[in-house]
Structures are given as structure tokens and as C-alpha cells.
Design a protein around this nucleic acid. Structure first.
Lengths: 250, 250
DNA sequence: TCGTAGAACACACATACGTTAGGAGGCTGC
DNA sequence: GCAGCCTCCTAACGTATGTGTGTTCTACGA
């Protein structure tokens, strides 16, 4: 099993940030047991309260993670894209503290948690890389807290757009400054802690100020620097390696 | 170096949740190089943007982690207490994406990041336990997001009080249902994404409803169940081992 | 071609929460 | 003993954001 044939290769990009893998590490990673699966939009990968036995690697499409609070309100806490190893959290900690759901149609690979534990234990370099990966996850959560806790609606939404853009570009998924934003305004609201109505108002305001251009769900960012400023966005918290940064600035 | 003589023993309690350590693991952990230090209230352990070379184990007192957003607003993202190994995040990821500051006078042990990396690599069981520990951290961040994003002021504050109570009890630090809340109302505001004025209003409301009893900074919870209900609090996300749960219910 | 459904959009009205300002009580240092 | 300072507390007022309701637009299938 090598990089050409295994569908797990997207995992190498992210984990490779954090460790110099040996040939054997690499082979072991790509040889992880897995089952491929396609998920419909709104399909669940895990439900809060489940005891999942598998982790999930995103191969294509987008997932989102969310929690439900009293009265049924929903808070989206993260977006995941190709290469993201989601749900290490849920599956390693035995009981899922949040749900994972498909934003768009997704191709994913399910990997048994036992196999993850096993490879992390027998290949410490891989274990460390996975650990680092979850540390970055934590950093993104922290920024998300600051976003919903201390920024006003316009800044929040601009920030979310910035994060999404930059992550897409870092993963090599976005072309130029335009991309399809796969979220409804209701989902944007749940991600920012606002209401759909106010998201609508705010998107319009951003549009009118020329910070973004909308055409149905596609969003174009003409002036990245202005949007980043409006969104109080600094990319440090993404902990991207230097050679992945500055792409969008050029 | 054994459990009787090393000041690092508080670390064993939390990491021990996640792995069966061998005698040698235990010795290696307690023999980690470290320097003890006392920190004044409001003293900094790390500042956002620093490149810290040490992690920090809390031995006594409380720390808080926070981020500053545009216009100087502050968002507190976590509280740490005895036994918490904070700042793995900052020190392993090279550049600190948030600050860590003392809430009260603290005793801490600084442990070189290199030593952490080393022991995680050479003692995979320890590495895994630390990994799990940071996964739980992530889970607490997720709940914090839901808290500031989707709950109203009263629920938010009640939730924060519940989390604090339960963690204190799980760590064996709280007696009965009363404890000293070491935060000013301004800090509570920064933790919940509210303003000090509104925190004041809300605390008073909680008091008037008999959910808490205040006497200066000490807070007494007479009816845990009612407070947990008011705070939409379920402890799953803390991922406490079963034998640590239910203490406060009894 | 029409009918349905989801999403975007709009507007009036309501309110939870923020802002500004100031006073009262309790520390600490001189 | 007083000055200075921090924290708590209160009140009046302002506003960003939520609520309720309804219309339009587009996609899609019968």
C-alpha cells in the first residue's frame, strides 16, 4: 500500500506538518484498516451520546460538528474539510459529547478507534502527530470561543469567512479568492451564535461595503486584507506551517 | 523519586484516569525535570505571541486562559486548578495563541517542553494519557462555545458555576457545597461573554431565586439539582471517570 | 405547466443586554 | 486617621440583536 493507491493519503498532508515520518510510519498509516463510505447532506456521522467505535477521515466534502443546548438550540463548533481527521475526540473518549453531520455530500473513511490507539502506541511519531493535530483543533476552538463571545455580528461572520477561506487555500482546495460557501444562512447563524435573520442583515451589510461579493452561495473575496481587518482575523491560531501561509496575501 | 517526595504527584491523578501506568512510567513522570515557582495574582505564565519553552503544572491556586480581541476586549476561555497540566497547547505548538494568567496566588511547576516531548515519545502510555488529557480539554472548549454562543445570561452563569463546582469536587478540592469563587464579576463577565453590569444583575437574580447563596466571594449551592437544571448542565463533556461522578449528588 | 419546498429576503416590533455614570463599602499603605 | 483604589452595586438610557410574520426566488419533480 503506498501513496498512489491508498485513499487515506489526504491524512498525510496534515499529519506530516508535525513529524518527519519514516517510510515505515508512512506505510503503517496508509495501511490502516478502513471502510469507505459516502454520506448524504445532513447525514450523521455520530450523534451526541453515541459510543462510536470508529474515527472518520474526510476525503471530500464538508462536515460540521455541533451541540444541542436546552430548548433545542444548536451551536456549530467546527467545520471540517478534506484531510481532517475528525472524531478522534468522540471515539477515543468513549462517549460522544457532540454530533458530527454532513454539510454536503461527503466521502469519508471510517477507521476503527482500536487501530488508531494501536498505531499511536506502536508508532510514537504518528501518535505525536495525531496529538499535535488535536492540539491545533483545540486552538481553533479557543478562537471560536472568542469569536462568539466577544465580537459583534459583522466581525464574527467576517472572521468565519476568513477562517474558511484560509483553510481551504492551505488545503489546496480553493482557487483564486472565490469559493462556494456550502452553508445556509441558518447554519451560519448556528455557527456564529446569531439568528438567521441577523445573519441575513449582516451578510448584506458586508456585501454593501464591498467586503464580499455574493452570487447565490458562492462568495468572492476581492480584498482579503480588508476582510481580515473587518473580521479581526489573524491566522496564528491555525498554526499553519510557514510555507502554507501568505498564499492568499500574494 | 517516588510519590511521597515529588511535587509533581498531582499530575498522576488526572493522567492516571487514562492509562494503567507501570512502575517505571510512574517513576519517569515524577522524575521529570522541573522548577517550582510561585505566581502572584494577575501574574502571567505566558503571553499570547510568546514562544514558551516550558509547560506548567498547577500545584495550588487557580489560573485562567484568555484571548484578547480587537478593541482590547478579553475572552476567558478556561479555568485551571490543581493537577491541571496547562499550556501543553502553547508550548508544544511553538507560538502561544493565548495568554495564561494567575487568578489567585499559585504554586506551579515548570516542565521543559522538550522533556514532555521526550517522555511522550519514549513512554507511549504517558504520551497517550497526555493526549487524552488534551482531548478532554477540547471537549471543555466545545461546551464553552455552546455556552457563550447559545445560552442566555442566567443559564451561562449557572453553567459556569456548575462546571467549577463539579471540577473542584472531582479534584477533591471542595468541601460540602460551599466554596470560594475566586473571580471578580468582571472576570466572570469575560468568561461568559457578558458585561460586568449584567453579571451583577444576573447573580442577584440567581440569588433571589434561591439557586445560590452569596456571601462576599463565597458561593454556596444548596440545591445542586436545581442549579444544574437552570444551567442546562450535564457533566458528560467533562469525561470524568464514573467513580468521580455523582459525588455532588449524594 | 403547475405545485411544492427550501432558502433568501424584508419589515415592524420587542427585549436582553450593553453603555454610561456614579455611589457605597472594604482593603492597603502612609 | 486619611487617601487611594478596587470591587460591588444601582439606575437610566441606548442599541444590537431576537421574534414573528410574510413575500419572493429558485430548484425540482409530477
Amino acid at each position: 500500500m503506498n501513496a498512489e493507491t491508498s485513499p487515506l493519503t489526504p491524512m498525510l498532508r496534515k499529519l506530516g506538518y508535525w513529524a518527519e515520518f519514516s517510510e515505515e510510519d508512512r506505510d503503517a498509516l496508509l495501511a490502516l484498516p478502513h471502510t469507505l463510505k459516502s454520506i448524504e447532506p445532513q447525514g450523521f456521522v455520530v450523534r451526541e451520546g453515541d459510543k462510536p467505535t470508529h474515527s472518520c477521515l474526510v476525503l471530500s466534502g464538508y462536515l460540521y460538528r455541533h451541540k444541542i443546548v436546552a430548548h433545542g438550540a444548536r451551536q456549530i463548533i467546527a467545520l471540517q474539510m478534506s484531510g481532517d481527521l475528525v472524531d478522534l475526540q468522540n471515539s477515543l473518549l468513549r462517549v460522544a459529547d457532540h454530533s458530527v453531520q454532513a454539510l454536503t455530500r461527503c466521502e469519508v473513511a471510517y477507521i476503527p478507534s482500536d487501530a488508531i490507539r494501536e498505531i499511536a502506541f506502536t508508532h510514537p511519531r504518528i501518535g505525536m502527530a495525531m496529538w499535535y493535530d488535536t492540539l491545533v483543533d483545540g486552538s481553533m476552538f479557543r478562537e471560536w470561543i472568542a469569536n462568539v463571545g466577544r465580537r459583534d455580528a459583522k466581525t464574527r461572520i467576517a472572521h468565519l469567512l476568513c477562517e474558511f477561506t484560509l483553510r481551504l487555500e492551505a488545503a489546496g482546495l480553493a482557487e483564486k479568492n472565490s469559493y462556494e460557501l456550502p452553508m445556509t444562512q441558518e447554519q451560519l447563524a448556528d455557527a456564529t451564535g446569531l439568528t438567521p435573520v441577523h445573519v441575513n442583515r449582516t451578510l448584506r451589510a458586508l456585501d454593501e461595503e464591498g467586503l464580499i461579493v455574493r452570487d447565490r452561495r458562492s462568495v468572492t473575496v476581492d480584498d482579503w486584507k480588508r476582510l481580515a481587518e473587518a473580521g479581526d482575523f489573524q491566522s496564528t491560531y491555525l498554526h499553519l506551517p510557514e510555507d502554507r501561509l501568505g498564499l492568499v496575501h500574494s
